[in-house]
Amino acid sequence: MSATTATKSTTTSFASALNTAMSDAMENDPSVVVFGEDVGTLGGVFRITDGLTKRFGENRCFDTPLAESGIAGTAVGMAINGMRPVIEMQFDAFAYPSLEQIFSHIAKMANRTRGNVRLPIVIRIPYGGGVGGVEHHCDSSEAYYAHTPGLKVFTPATVADAYLMLREAIDSEDPVVFFEPKKLYWSKEAEDLSELRAEYESGTSSRRIGAEANAQIVREGTDVSIISYGPSVSTALKAAEATAEDGISAEVLDLRSIVPFDDAALQATVEKTGRAVVVAEAQGFASVASEITARIQERCFHSLSSPVLRVTGFDIPYPAPKLEEHHLPDVDRILDTLDELQWED
């Protein structure tokens, strides 16, 4: 996506970046274990764990009985006893049986025990729509988790981040809910996994996820900031390109990490452009997009030349495949919203 990556000769898919991040972490640390539904023999329904059982054995990557609460709950026990579980929820909406374990225990254990019991668990969740999936297979459920103190929430939008951020999540001492935009699984970019590995393992990558400074400008601009994350970043970039033809220069910010939240980057871009549009697939009411909008208002009010607008999914259950195109934020809807901004003083 950036100029440096475009020159690479090797192309890498989002799926293989995730897969390699797990196998590298497993290689480096025997306490990393991967489990979930169909992750072993099958390699996951999206093949993200393909080959891990073969390479590391059934004790390191294994199928569980079909029970999400069981998967999350036993991950708690495993983490208490020295392991670093990386668990897979098969689809966004199928994580819901595990919410009690996630909200009541995974998120709170460190706090309850005054930091004596930390749970370095990664919960991988394929999420979002745009792939023609039937009901319960396309939810954007990030707000539920982001609303729960104690959980970090990451979502990569590029192949490089798929690798770097999953490594980061596995190394985190806090539980991380790792949202994988399923529409990006098959996307490919000019990236070289051995370079990404070297970058991550050097410990000095500028792209590391820390307590702050996590968001990245993925397109520079001067007139308006489009703030986005995960599956919507590519839509935001396309809209930015399209609006450039109308003479509007849009900057695009990819949040990467929803929790922790990078207020500084948000503030910097909005203060620079004076206008902001937030784009996310999830329904807009009480959403991550709402939170971003509120933070802009709190921090950048005096720099704003226009109200902050949002482009999100409608406040409806995710539609059946034939109607999803009407629900998802697309380039046209972003362009409409850019038109609605106040452009003259």
Binding site: E37, D38, G40, V45, D63, P65
Partner: peptide, 11 residues
């Protein structure tokens, strides 16, 4: 089977 998981891994 449950997708790829045989009953023996289930119960």
């Amino acid at each position: 089977y449950a997708i790829s998981v045989p009953l023996s891994s289930q119960s």
